[in-house]
Amino acid sequence: MKTYILPSLKLTGILILICSVFYPLLITVFGWMSPGNGGGEKILRKGSVVGYANIGQKFTEAKYFQGRPSNCDYNAAGSGGSNKAPSNVEYLAIVQARIDTFLIDNPTIHKSEIPSDLVTASGSGLDPNISVQSARIQVSRIAMERGKSEKEINQLIDQLIEKPLLGIFGPEKVNVLKLNLALDEL
């Protein structure tokens, strides 16, 4: 009896210590070391918080760069993707509608130039980034709305391009919120 129960109790105690004390502490330390000290990376403008770097926001006005479509309408309390399959007819109709809307808003763009990330919803619904091509094809519309030259806006995008992690994971991207803030200061 004693030979089995005592070691089991000891093992349980040790595992409780490792799993519910040391491991959470380790993770908390990692959190403190990360940008924003674990509270999220805030983006400030004139001293007030306008958003978080890793949570996407919705931009509808024509003078701003638009982010990706969102299945949850950028509602961070109920994030999620559409879970639609590429063979789903209803889903293809939704994508077609997005393409048509985009072409109406950006009359100078040809359909074959639209990158796929700009008309498909992200998995989280809160994607803060768009690909560089998605930013470039919105330049002519924004230049017209704001009365700026396309060259200026393209230079702004060049400054804000984020390289892929370790050079291999994912394409080059731009943070929509940072880009729009920089746009307002132009």
Partner: peptide, 17 residues
């Protein structure tokens, strides 16, 4: 659907990945 597919199928995926 005649759009630029160089990024692959992006439905349900994040740009940073």
């Amino acid at each position: 659907m005649g759009i630029d597919q160089s990024h692959g199928s992006m439905e349900g995926k994040e740009v940073r990945f």
